[in-house]
């Protein structure tokens, strides 16, 4: 059941992205989608609207990039609780540091060893 929920919620979030690409008159690129999902993830999370999605769908809510935004927002608020103003500045990146570091490391390694196929 848990797996099914992750599938449904994740699929649903992706389908919204597809509809945004296909049905809006603007030329929406992957860059727009990624930025849009992260920022809406942050906003929804700060309003307390994203946590229920995570509770219901698990990875279905954390794997889409809005989940990354959720971690950023939760980290920032968590940081304020423990460190005050300084935490607001560093909390978000702290909470997502593993993901960012992984992106840099794997990005660089793969880009070094692979060749673009065209």
């Amino acid at each position: 059941m848990e797996l099914f929920k992750a599938f449904v919620l994740g699929g649903f979030l992706c389908a919204i992205g597809q509809l945004l690409i296909d049905l809006t008159p603007f030329n929406i690129t992957p860059g727009h989608i990624l930025v849009g999902y992260v920022t809406s993830g942050v906003v929804l999370s700060s309003l307390g609207l994203y946590q229920p999605l995570v509770d219901w769908g698990g990875a279905g809510a954390t794997v889409p990039l809005s989940g990354f935004g959720h971690s950023l927002a939760q980290g920032a608020m968590e940081g304020v609780k423990t460190q005050g103003l300084l935490g607001a500045l560093g909390g978000g990146l702290e909470a997502t540091s593993i993901g960012i570091a992984a992106a840099i490391v794997f990005g660089l390694v793969v880009a070094t060893f692979a060749q673009p196929k065209g």
Binding site: G17, L20, L34, P64, F106, P116
Partner: peptide
């Protein structure tokens, strides 16, 4: 095939990083 289905998940984020890096490989590290 998948469109947003492979852009929105965090794997798509990784794809955007590697594809951009790979493409410019010939211009040095």
């Amino acid at each position: 095939v998948a469109g947003a289905g492979s852009i929105v998940p965090i794997t798509g984020f990784a794809n955007s990083i590697v594809s951009s890096g790979l493409e410019s490989k010939k211009e040095g590290y």
